[in-house]
Each structure stands twice: as C-alpha cells, then as structure tokens.
Design a protein around this nucleic acid. Structure first.
Lengths: 152, 152
DNA sequence: GCAAACCGCACTCAAAAGGTGCGGATTCAA
DNA sequence: TTGAATCCGCACCTTTTGAGTGCGGTTTGC
C-alpha cells in the first residue's frame, strides 16, 4: 500500500513533540501522555530513530530523548528511511523480468524507468519536507492531560 | 510501506502491453506470455480494472481486454486508486487524536495537515503520470517467446 | 459440440505490521 | 543504600494484508 506505517506516524509525532519541547530531555511516558500511543511501541520506534542517529538518548531516572539535529535538518525522508528503509516502490528489479532477456541485459524494461522517476520525485519530496515545516505552524501546546495507553 | 503492490505492478504491465498493442483485443494469456506473471492474478487485476472502467472486456473465444481510454487519458493515479483505493498515507484521521480534543474539535493536529500536503503532492504526481509516458520511450517489442506461469 | 476466453465466489498460504513479556542496565534522589 | 524511573534488547504473539488458487459457470467463435 502507498501508505506510511503506524510506526512512522508514531515516530513523526514523537519527533514533532521533541521539536516542540526544544532540546528538553523528553521521556516516552511524556510523549504518550501527549498522544494516546502505545508506550512500548513508541519506545521501540525511538530506539530505532536513535540507532539511525536522528535522536540522542539519555538513560537513567530523568532520562529520555532529544533531537540529534535541529528541526531544520531533519526531514521526512530521514524518518521514513530510518523506519521503513529506502522505498523501492516496486519490486521490479528483482523478480519481474522480461522473458528472453529484458531488464537484465538491457536495463530498460517498459515499466521500470518511469517508476524510478516517480520514486525519485516522491523521495525528493520527502527529503525536502523538514521537521520544522511540520511544527512551525502549530502553537506550542503545553502538556495536556495525563493518561498513557500501556495500561490497556 | 511506501510501496506499490504487486497487483498494481501487474496492472501497469498489462496496461502498458495493451497500449503497445494499440486497440487490439489482448487476452490474459498473451500478457502472461509477454511477462512471466501469474495468469490468474493478472486476470483478477484486469477484472478490477474493468470494474473501475479503465479497460473494456470482450468475452468468448477470441476475447480479451482493450483500453477503455487512450493512453494519454489513463494515469497512474487511475490505476493506483482502482487497485489500492485512494491513498490515505496515514491513518491519522481515525485513531490518533490529541488528548483533550485535538483533531476532532480543532481540525489542526500538528501532524495531519503537513501529511495531507505530502499526500496531495504525491497524488498530483500520480495523476499527472500518463500511461502514454510509460510507453512512449520504449520500442514496440513484438511478441516474445511463449511460456506462461500458471503451469507452475 | 468443443475449445478458448472471461466471470465470480471463496478459500488458503505467506509475509508484514503492530504490539507485548520479560528481564536487564543505568541514573538520580531520597 | 535503596528504590523508582528510565532506557535497552531479545523474542514472541496476534492481526491485517497481500498473493495466489480451486472450482464451477457463462459467453463466443470455429
């Protein structure tokens, strides 16, 4: 499906919240008090984002996460590629080949190259959408009412 | 995943082949002799495309499919929306809402509107990619060697 | 009549996505 | 020093979605 995964949504929401808190160390708990998301899954996503170098983690009692870069330098492309991998968009390269030597020999199957163009345009779009542009227009909402999800 | 489904690939390949044959009635068998695709699944996809009005079908012995419109008027967006449905890109509208009234009351959750922008741009891209642009640059290859897949 | 093609329901199988159990390590503060 | 809050990491389960097939039927041309 041409759709972002829930994990990517969670990651975006978490990053938006981190950006709103501007450098503060933010715990998973706080994020899940702001948004009704499953705590464990969000934690896993943050961990992946940390491994990808998008956020830094602080362990211990007052630990949590912070953005590793400014929101201007964090793009949707970074998030998607960290959580879903670079998008192949089709599996054309692997199984589907023209009979009698098509894609393999002559790298110009009738469908592959246009799809590649679509993919590249999509990818450019993702890479030019910064986290800042996802935050800037929205008021800096103070912490909302508590109530995480894990307890369900 | 930010990726087209195999069915969409099959549909595109089939439509490209239909376009190459310029109005001829093309059977599923012929398509599967051209590309090593599972016959039944391709048939199912063609059927869906027919229900969506993208192709016309002819029943009987020399039956098959033809394009319902010229390749200039058939877009990637038509194909994707016929086979995958209009892309929501996120499920933001349904389950994820800000606590204490966010998306519901004030339709401006910090993540929804930018995602919508991304979605719309992607959608525009799909709608401006015509089947013609997927075919034009490739030579009109004559029928290749036979050999469908169903027999596997 | 027979073969080739499309039609349509429903079903199975496999892969992906989403989420959780459980124990551990680290840090802060009382 | 003890305990609570936090992140860490592996492995597992459940649900959803995607891909493909069984099987019988209908339509059409030779």
């Amino acid at each position: 499906m041409l759709q972002l995964t829930k994990r990517t949504e969670y990651g975006l929401l978490a990053l938006v919240h981190l950006a709103e808190r501007e450098g503060a160390v933010v715990s998973v708990r706080e994020i899940c008090e702001r948004y009704p998301l499953p705590r464990r899954t969000v934690a896993e996503v943050l961990k992946e984002l940390q491994h990808a170098g998008l956020v830094d983690s602080t362990r211990g009692s007052n630990g949590g996460y912070t953005l590793a870069r400014t929101p201007e330098l964090l793009t949707l492309g970074d998030v998607v590629s960290a959580l879903e991998g670079a998008p192949p968009l089709t599996t054309c390269e692997s199984p589907i080949v023209l009979k009698g030597g098509g894609c393999e020999v002559q790298p110009m199957c009738p469908i592959k190259s246009p799809i590649h163009r679509v993919r590249e345009r999509l990818w450019q779009m993702l890479e030019h959408t910064t986290l800042r542009s996802l935050v800037s227009k929205t008021a800096h909402v103070p912490l909302g009412a508590p109530g995480a999800v894990e307890s369900n």
